[in-house]
Design a protein around this nucleic acid. Structure first.
Length: 641
RNA sequence: GGUCCCGUAGCUCAACGGAUAGAGCAACUGCCUUCUAAGCAGUAGGUUACAGGUUCGAGCCCUGUCGGGAUCACCA
C-alpha cells in the first residue's frame, strides 16, 4: 500500500485495458479504482495511510452533478481541515492525475466525481463482451439446498409456493455465484398422517383411483385424509354422548371449563385411548413398520399418486430437484451419531435412559435426542440425514429452506452438529421465511382457508389471460398460451420473491397478482420492447460499429450503465445473504430505468447513426441482463405482450 | 414468563451507518399522428411505534418501553 499513486503497476487495473481497442480504463472495477485512488490521494495529501476499502463510494444522487461520490467525512480528522477543503484538494489531485476523471464538485462532505465518456463506452463494451455477464467463475464447491419438503397426505399450498420459489431462486443465484448446487427435497412419506389417508381409502374408497375420478393424485389422497378427519370427528361426537364420556367429563373437567372446551382439549387423548379409527390407524402404522406386504403395497400406491400430483405442480412452478430423500428411508438414522455423541461427552444419559444435549450455555434449553425406549425424535433424524447428505455429495454448505416456525429447531440442530465436530457444521444455514398470511389471518386447515397451490396457479393464469384478451393480443394457439403462462407465472413469482424472505407477507387471493407497476410483467414488458428492437436489427441489418463514436451521453443512458455495472455484485450479495429479493428489486430498478430511457430518448429514430448504434447496443446489454436476472428467479420472458 | 423475529405513506414493499427516507397500488392531473400506454411525467400522502444513548452522520448500531408474530413437545 502506498506505493506510488498512478504508477505503472496501478495502470493495469485502473486504465490500460487496451485489448478492447478504444477503451483506456476498466469499467466494471470503477468502484475499486476510485477507492484506491482516493485513498492514495488522501495519503499523499495528508501523510496518513488509508486502507482503500475504508473509502466509501456511492452513486451520485440524481439531483447533483457527477457520477460517483466519495464520502470524505472519515478523513477530515486526519486532514485537520473542513470536509469542503478536503474534497477540493482530493478532487483537484484526482482530476490532475487520474485519466478517467472529467470533473468534480464538492457538496458538504461528498466529493462528486464526473467520469469521462470513454469510461461509459468501456463499461458497455465490457458488459456486452463478457459471456454470461453476472456469473462468477466456478468455485469447485458444492452447496446443497433443501426446499419444498412436503407431506404426502395433502396437496401443496400457498406456503409451499413461497418455499419452492425461494428455494429455486436461491439455488439459481448460488449457481450464478459459482457454486455447484444440489437441489433436494425430503419427502415426509410415512407416519400417522399418510396412514389416515390409507385407512380412509381402504374403508370408503371402493377401489376408486385418481384416473377413475379424474383428479390429481395429490388431491385425491388429500381428500381421503380430509374424509378420515371427518369420520373421526363424527365418531368423537357420538362418543361424547356415551356414559363413559359423560363420566370422564364430570370427573376431569376443570372448574369454569365448558363442555365444548373440555372435549376440544381432550381430543388427542380420546384419539389415542378410545377411538376405534385411532386404533386402526395405529395398527396400520405398526403393520407398516413391520413391513407387512399389503400395507406397504397400499402405501406405495397412494404415495405414487401423490408424487404424480406433486410433479405436475412442480412443473407449473418450474422447479426441479436433483435428488429426493424419503423419510421412510431416513427416519431411523442418527442413532449412531447419538452413540458417538455420548462417547464424546457431547450428550448425556438420564436415569430413564433417554439421551440429551445441554445447550443452556448457548442460550437454549436441554434437548432430547433419543427417547428412553431408544426411538428417534425429529432432531435425531435431522442429524442423521445431514451426515448422510454430506457423505452423498460432500457439500460443506447446506441450506434448509424452512418456515420460521422452526427457527428454534434449526438453531438447536446446527449447534448440536457443531459440538459434534461435523466438518460441514459451519456451512449450515436455515433460510427461514415468514408465513404467508391471508388478509383474514393465518391459513387454517380446519377452517378451510388453505389456499391450494394448483388453484392459485389456475387463478393467476385466468387473470393473465383476461388481461391479454383485454389488450387485444391473441389468446389462442401454443405461442399465445406460452406467453400467457410466462406472464402469469412471472407475476406470481416476482410478487413472492421481491419481499425479503424473513418478512411475513400478506397475500390477497382476491386481488391475486397485479400486472402493472412494480411487478413481474413490468419487467417482462421492458424486455419485450428490447426484443422488438433486436428483431429489427436483424431484419434491417443495422451497423452497430459506430456506437463508440457517440459522444453526448444522456443522464438516462448513464443511469442504465450504472445499473448494469452493479449486476454482478448484486448477484454476489444475494448469494452471500441467501436473499433472492435483492435480485428481484434490482430487476425492477433496471427495468424502470429502461422504461424511462425508452420514453425520453428515441432509439431507432435517434438523431445520428452513432446515437442509434449506441442506444441499440445499450438496449441489448440491458435486455441480456434483465433476462439473466429474471432467469435467476425462475421468471421467463414472453415473446410479446 | 424465557428466547428469537418484525413495527417505515391508507395498503403492499425498498433504502452497504451517508446527502432532502424512496417505489408500486389506491386517489387526483396530464402524455398515444414518432420504436408496443402492461409505459412516462406530475399532485397529494411520513415525528421511520415510543424514549434515551453511541458519532461528523441513525430507519439501520446499543439500552429500555409499547404493539404484533413465532417458539419454548420424549409431534414432525
Amino acid at each position: 500500500m502506498g506505493a506510488g499513486l498512478w504508477g505503472r503497476d496501478d495502470c493495469r487495473d485502473v486504465a490500460c485495458n487496451v485489448s478492447t481497442g478504444w477503451g483506456t480504463f476498466a469499467g466494471m472495477d470503477i468502484l475499486r479504482t476510485l477507492q484506491r485512488d482516493v485513498a492514495a490521494a488522501v495519503e499523499r495529501l495528508y501523510g496518513e495511510p488509508v486502507a482503500p476499502e475504508k473509502v466509501q463510494i456511492n452513486p451520485t444522487l440524481p439531483e447533483f452533478t457527477g457520477d460517483y461520490a466519495a464520502v470524505l467525512f472519515p478523513f477530515v480528522k486526519l486532514a485537520r481541515k473542513s470536509p469542503e477543503a478536503v474534497g477540493a484538494e482530493v478532487g483537484e489531485l484526482l482530476q490532475r492525475e487520474a485519466p478517467y476523471v472529467k470533473g468534480y464538485n464538492v457538496v458538504k462532505g461528498f466529493l462528486n466525481i464526473e467520469l469521462k465518456e470513454t469510461f461509459w463506452h468501456e463499461l458497455l463494451q465490457e458488459v456486452l463482451s463478457t459471456p454470461h455477464y453476472g456469473r462468477q467463475p466456478r468455485r469447485g464447491e458444492r452447496v446443497m439446498v433443501e426446499y419444498s419438503s412436503p407431506n404426502t397426505n395433502k396437496p401443496l399450498h400457498l406456503g409451499h409456493v413461497r418455499n419452492c420459489l425461494l428455494g429455486w431462486s436461491c439455488s439459481q443465484i448460488l449457481d450464478a455465484a459459482g457454486y455447484d448446487v444440489v437441489k433436494v427435497q425430503i419427502i415426509n412419506d410415512r407416519g400417522v398422517a399418510i396412514c389416515k389417508s390409507m385407512l380412509a381409502w381402504q374403508k370408503f374408497g371402493e377401489g376408486r383411483t385418481p384416473q377413475s375420478e379424474g383428479i390429481k393424485g395429490d388431491h385425491f389422497v388429500g381428500d381421503y385424509y380430509v374424509l378420515f378427519e371427518r369420520k373421526s370427528q363424527e365418531e368423537y361426537e357420538a362418543w361424547q354422548q356415551t356414559p363413559e364420556a359423560r363420566a370422564l367429563y364430570e370427573a376431569r373437567r376443570k372448574p369454569e371449563q365448558s363442555e365444548k372446551d373440555f372435549f376440544k382439549e381432550y381430543k388427542n387423548r380420546w384419539f389415542n385411548e378410545h377411538s376405534r379409527l385411532g386404533a386402526e390407524v395405529r395398527d396400520m402404522l405398526l403393520r407398516w413398520e413391520a413391513g407387512d406386504p399389503d400395507t406397504l403395497a397400499l402405501w406405495r400406491q397412494m404415495n405414487n399418486w401423490v408424487y404424480e400430483g406433486f410433479e405436475a405442480t412442480y412443473a407449473q412452478l418450474g422447479v426441479r430437484f436433483d435428488k429426493n430423500y424419503y423419510e421412510s428411508d431416513t427416519y431411523l438414522l442418527g442413532k449412531d451419531i447419538v452413540e458417538e455423541g455420548l462417547q464424546k461427552g457431547v450428550f448425556f444419559k438420564k436415569e430413564d435412559g433417554s439421551v440429551w444435549i445441554d445447550l443452556t450455555d448457548a442460550g437454549h434449553d436441554q434437548k432430547v435426542v433419543l427417547r428412553a425406549d431408544g426411538t428417534s425424535v425429529y432432531i435425531t433424524q435431522d442429524m442423521g440425514t445431514a451426515r448422510m447428505r454430506y457423505r452423498d455429495f460432500g457439500c460443506k454448505r447446506m441450506v434448509y429452506v424452512v418456515a420460521d416456525e422452526q427457527n428454534y429447531h434449526f438453531a438447536v440442530l446446527f449447534e448440536t452438529l457443531r459440538r459434534l465436530g461435523e466438518p460441514y457444521a459451519d456451512g449450515l444455514y436455515h433460510l427461514s421465511y415468514g408465513l404467508v398470511e391471508l388478509p383474514t389471518g393465518r391459513m387454517k386447515t380446519r377452517e378451510g382457508t388453505v389456499v391450494d397451490a394448483d388453484d392459485l396457479i389456475a387463478e393467476v393464469l385466468r387473470l393473465a389471460r383476461e388481461q391479454v384478451a383485454e389488450r387485444g393480443s391473441p389468446t389462442e394457439g401454443p405461442e399465445a398460451e406460452e406467453n400467457i403462462r410466462r406472464i402469469a407465472m412471472g407475476a406470481l413469482k416476482f410478487f413472492m420473491i421481491r419481499v425479503h424472505p424473513k418478512r411475513r407477507m400478506v397475500f390477497n387471493p382476491e386481488e391475486s397478482v397485479d400486472l402493472q407497476g412494480q411487478t413481474g410483467p413490468y419487467i417482462q414488458y421492458s424486455w419485450v420492447r428490447i426484443h422488438g428492437l433486436m428483431q429489427r436489427i436483424e431484419h434491417e441489418s443495422i451497423d452497430l460499429s459506430t456506437a463508440h463514436q457517440y459522444t453526448d451521453l444522456q443522464p438516462q443512458e448513464k443511469e442504465l450503465l450504472k445499473a448494469l455495472r452493479e449486476y454482478p455484485s448484486v448477484v454476489l450479495t444475494a448469494a452471500q445473504e441467501y436473499d433472492p429479493s435483492h435480485v428481484a428489486n434490482y430487476g425492477y430498478q433496471l427495468a424502470k430505468n429502461y422504461h424511462r430511457f425508452w420514453h425520453d430518448l428515441p432509439v431507432f429514430n435517434a438523431p445520428t447513426p452513432e446515437a442509434r448504434a449506441f442506444r441499440l447496443q445499450l438496449s441489448r446489454a440491458v435486455g441480456q441482463t434483465l433476462q439473466s436476472a429474471m432467469h435467476l428467479l425462475g421468471i421467463e420472458m414472453p415473446q410479446r405482450m
